[in-house]
Computed example of a mutant assay.
Amino acid sequence: MIKPVLAGAACLVLLAACNSERSPEAVDKAQDAASVPVGQTSAATMGANLQSAYIPNAAMGDMYEIQAADIALQRSQNARVKELAQMIKTDHMAATNAFKAMVPQAAPDAALPTALDERRQGLIDNLRSASAANFDATFIDQQIAAHNEALTLHRGFSNEDSPLAAHARSVVPKIEGHLRMAEEIKAAM
């Protein structure tokens, strides 16, 4: 029931954006905004409660973060944004490596995703297509949403009866640090 409601809400957001402003960036911004409740709901429900949902969501979250950071390192002209992007890339690569080492022991039959899901790929596409003038704001807005989603996912799973709960607990402080820095940058923009 949750998926149809969220899909309907996302469609309404997109239609409103398309009707009020027809620029591609307005549509991209609406897509990014529609992604937020979908990601939060997924993280809070299935991802935080089921190891079979936590594994792909944690892995794709890191994949998205690394790809977004790479784009920001190439495109941003803001030293603080680049500093955040480098921190995100370093920390999420370390988290990915630790996670990949833990998953086979915790869930021998689990397959780690090798590509982003459609929602996260859409965020990457929108980041790539952002104009130079709007790039930093787009990156920071996406990072605030993505790190809030990641906190919901990892905090929720940290109390589960799984060896991966230790991983969830270990990444929360880094995610909180990224979120704080992104919020500080946004406030200064």
Rank of each mutant, 00 (worst) to 15 (best):
V13E: 13
F99C: 09
D91M: 09
G47Y: 04
A146V: 09
A94R: 12
H154E: 04
S129F: 07
S129T: 06
A137M: 12
K89F: 06
Q31V: 09
N78E: 06
V172G: 07
A43Q: 00
S131F: 08
E65G: 00
A146Q: 11
Q31N: 12
A58K: 05
R120D: 11
V5R: 08
D136Y: 07
A137T: 13
E65V: 03
S23R: 04
M181D: 11
A188D: 14
A137N: 09
R119D: 02
K100M: 04
V172T: 14
E176R: 13
S170A: 15
S20R: 14
A187F: 10
N19S: 13
K3C: 07
F157N: 13
Q86F: 07
K100I: 02
V172M: 10
K29A: 15
G156Q: 08
E184L: 13
L50W: 05
A130M: 01
E176Y: 01
V171S: 01
E149L: 02
E21P: 00
A53P: 03
V81A: 02
Q121C: 06
A94D: 07
Q143N: 06
L12K: 09
A187P: 10
A30Q: 05
N159C: 06
V13A: 13
E176V: 11
A168Q: 12
I144W: 11
G61N: 03
R128C: 07
S42C: 01
I55S: 04
A7M: 11
E83P: 01
A111F: 08
Q51L: 06
F135R: 00
T138A: 13
L84G: 03
L151P: 01
Q86T: 12
A30E: 10
L151C: 04
E118Q: 14
P104S: 04
S170F: 03
D28Y: 05
E149K: 12
I140Q: 00
A85M: 02
A9M: 14
L153C: 09
S162F: 08
I175D: 06
Q142A: 10
L15F: 12
E183A: 11
M87D: 10
A48S: 13
D62H: 12
L15K: 12
T138D: 10
A137E: 11
I88Q: 04
F139R: 06
A9K: 13
A107P: 08
N57F: 13
M102A: 15
D28V: 00
I185D: 08
R80W: 10
M181V: 10
V27R: 14
P163I: 09
M102G: 07
A33S: 12
T41D: 02
A94L: 06
L112R: 02
D136R: 07
S52N: 07
C18Y: 12
L151W: 03
T138I: 02
A115W: 00
R169H: 12
G156D: 01
A44Q: 14
A26H: 05
